[in-house]
Computed example of a mutant assay.
Amino acid sequence: MAAGAATAGLVRACHPEPTVAVTALSGLLALRLGHHPATLVLVMAAVFTGQLTIGWSNDLVDADRDRAVGRTDKPLVTRRVSARTVRVALAVAAGACVPLSVALGPAAGLLHLGLVGCGVAYNLVLKRTPLSWLPYAVAFGLLPAVVSLALDPPEWPPGWMVAAGALLGVGAHLVNVLPDLDDDAATGVRGLPHRLGPLRARVTAVLVLTVASVLVVLGPGWPPAWAWGGLVVVGVLAVAALRGRGTTPFRAAMAIALVDVVLLVLRS
């Protein structure tokens, strides 16, 4: 039972939702770009271990702050898993990420390791600064490049995809932080969303995600009817995010991000 509880705590501490989402996105992009099945699995394994590295390091860095504000959803706070166990898991994930990334090829591997470094830099320093958006923009913008550079021969993704990914990353950062603004403020975290304030952060997130939607739909050329339909859905969600109350704006903004990801994969 103790081992099961520790495993459950490790899963929760790795930020499973974004870990699974980013890994799945990399796999879908690899599938769309025609990667060999073995390379597709390798891409996903490298990205997965990189996301584990970022997620576990985040909870370790934030443990004291989470404890101070009583974050009972954090397993390190509730002691469902020990800091030592998370450190060991982090070392294993980071250790596996390096050879898995290198196996993608020099360009894709070095780029992916740089993106993991961006995530760790966010955890350690940048989340408390006006540049908190930058690691998200870099990591989401260049994730498609990791996948395409792993092709044989390597290819650079189109500019619209990099730009849309970067905007999607910034929007995801703003939306992700919105529910935690008060807790963050109480512990001295002053990233871009905190400096904007709840209303301006929400409006900026919706604007950025909507622009990303337009880029994804129009960037590759004249879109098919279903892509226009996706843009209409984004428009409806944007109105709900801007005018809704309670949890509606947050949920609507998250839905825009999800639609953007689907459109990005289908238009790649």
Rank of each mutant, 00 (worst) to 15 (best):
T7A: 15
V47N: 02
G191T: 12
D182R: 15
V217G: 09
G229L: 08
N123S: 13
T78V: 02
N123L: 05
R87Y: 11
R245I: 02
K127Y: 03
A212Q: 08
G244Q: 06
L110S: 15
T23I: 06
D152F: 01
V217I: 11
V239H: 14
V189C: 13
R80Q: 14
L258S: 14
L151H: 05
A13H: 00
L209H: 07
V232L: 15
V146F: 01
P75S: 00
A166N: 02
R80F: 01
V98N: 13
L264D: 06
V88H: 10
G159F: 10
A201E: 04
L167E: 07
G246M: 10
A107V: 14
F250A: 07
L231I: 12
P223Y: 03
T204D: 11
V88G: 01
P106R: 14
P220K: 10
V206M: 10
A91Y: 04
Y122D: 03
T7V: 15
L104G: 06
Y136I: 04
D59Y: 00
A166H: 00
L31F: 15
P99F: 09
H15I: 07
T210P: 09
R267Y: 08
V86G: 10
A21M: 14
H35W: 03
L237I: 01
P154F: 01
L28V: 01
F140Y: 15
A13C: 03
A172F: 03
V22I: 14
V236Q: 07
P158K: 05
V86D: 09
V261K: 00
A145P: 03
V189F: 13
A238T: 11
L60C: 08
G191W: 12
A212I: 04
P37T: 13
P37N: 10
L215D: 08
L151N: 03
L42M: 12
G114P: 04
Y136P: 04
L207M: 12
D152N: 04
V81G: 00
L266P: 00
A137L: 11
G27N: 01
D184K: 02
A227D: 11
L143F: 09
R65K: 03
G159Q: 06
P220E: 12
T204W: 12
G109K: 12
L151F: 03
A227H: 09
G109I: 10
L174M: 00
V265L: 10
A172W: 10
W133Y: 06
P153E: 02
L231F: 10
D64N: 14
S57N: 11
D180E: 11
S213K: 05
A8F: 01
P135G: 01
A253S: 15
L207V: 14
V177T: 08
H112W: 14
